[in-house]
């Protein structure tokens, strides 16, 4: 970082110094031949363009390498590996185009600086060239469109496969609640008019499908590794977006409309801690659609575990429809999330 700053500052100083130089030149030349002043401007600015291009591209490569570790680690979902691969191909393609065009642009500007003894090459058009650089991008883009779309169709069609474990992710200002569909893998109906302190999701308890639904206690979500999951997203108030950066998964939560996303986690939290070498690593679900003053605090820990561990964890969570003998006094979801809302309340 420091090195980077030093390089950046040096670049700035160089340019400033050169410009001050030009200032002096210009003032000493004032009254002299104007063409000569412009010729100096052209020369120095041309050199500046060239320097900027070389230094810029160099810094770009340097920064990309340097900041590699801070980017998202390995994708932790099946489709995420596929889209990461696709992303890298895309980066390779645009990288090549980027280097060719930027180098050509700045190099030509440097090379073809003005000279009074020369005329520009009168070259208004060339149909063949135009066709060439229409057709080549078309072919390249077709390839990108086809690979991108086939990936997209697979990811979005999986929603209809019917083999995913249904998990509801429910967003509200400014937190998340998770509900598991239970043995029947069907969520009980819900209605926003039924929302109450002891029923934060507005679940219709008379719906038989709700009987085995399970809601999480704390502000965290467990999901089993290697098991397809069908997320159903809902929102209570405004738009939210459920973004799981490590799973390369994202879907908006829209009040009045259930949205879905299907994915299969492939790496447990424990394994990811080894991969990243960070024993405190945790997956996260963040809100990625502006939703109010405490938008930035709206997140939830996601824990990926082996199936057995998941099953035993789920047993400890409470059913949505309370069994008569259980006293649900301490299980008030709203109370549990008050702490997370502190920032929001303070701001309001």
């Amino acid at each position: 970082m420091n090195l980077l700053l030093i390089i950046a500052v040096l670049l700035g100083v160089l340019v400033t110094a050169r410009l001050l130089n030009v200032v002096q030149l210009a003032s000493s030349l004032s009254g002299e031949d104007k063409d000569e002043t412009q010729a100096r401007h052209d020369k120095w600015n041309g050199i500046g363009m060239m320097t900027f291009m070389i230094a810029g591209l160099g810094l770009m490569i340097y920064m990309t390498l340097k900041y590699q570790p801070f980017m998202l680690p390995e994708a932790a979902s099946k489709h995420g590996k596929e889209t990461d691969f696709l992303l890298n191909i895309n980066f390779a393609v645009i990288g090549i185009v980027f280097f060719i065009t930027q180098i050509a642009l700045f190099w030509f500007v440097y090379k073809y600086r003005h000279s009074a003894s020369r005329r520009a090459y009168f070259y208004p058009e060339n149909m063949k060239l135009e066709m060439l650089w229409t057709i080549i991008p078309t072919i390249v883009l077709s390839a990108l469109i086809i690979t991108g779309l086939s990936s997209w169709n697979r990811i979005t069609n999986d929603v209809n496969k019917g083999d995913g474990m249904v998990v509801q992710v429910y967003g509200y200002q400014f937190n998340w609640i998770t509900r598991y569909a239970g043995a029947d893998n069907m969520l009980g109906k819900s209605n926003f008019r039924l929302i109450a302190d002891d029923n934060p999701l507005g679940v219709d308890v008379s719906d038989p499908a709700a009987a085995d639904d399970i809601m999480t206690k704390a502000n965290e979500m467990y999901i089993p590794v290697g098991q397809p999951i069908l997320f159903e997203f809902d929102s209570r108030d405004v738009l939210h977006s459920a973004y799981f950066p490590h799973f390369r998964a994202q879907m908006n939560c829209v009040p009045g409309m259930t949205t879905r996303f299907y994915m299969e986690p492939t790496i447990t939290t424990a394994q990811m801690r080894e991969i990243t070498g960070n024993e405190k690593f945790d997956y996260v679900l963040v809100c990625n659609k502006i939703c109010g003053v405490a938008h930035y605090t709206m997140k939830m820990k996601v824990v990926v575990v082996e199936q057995a561990e998941f099953d035993s964890w789920l047993k400890g969570e409470r059913p949505v429809v309370p069994a008569p003998e259980v006293v649900p006094a301490q299980n008030n979801q709203i109370d549990n999330t008050v702490d997370n809302n502190e920032a929001a309340n303070a701001a309001v």
Binding site: T101, F108, E130, T134
Partner: peptide
């Protein structure tokens, strides 16, 4: 599909700009 198509006329514009400065007599 329609979005990525925009890249084609955009590419044409960029290449045309570069072709314009090629063998030019540039006053900066």
């Amino acid at each position: 599909f329609t979005t990525l198509l925009v890249a084609i006329p955009s590419a044409v514009k960029v290449f045309n700009y570069i072709a314009t400065v090629w063998k030019a007599n540039i006053i900066l």
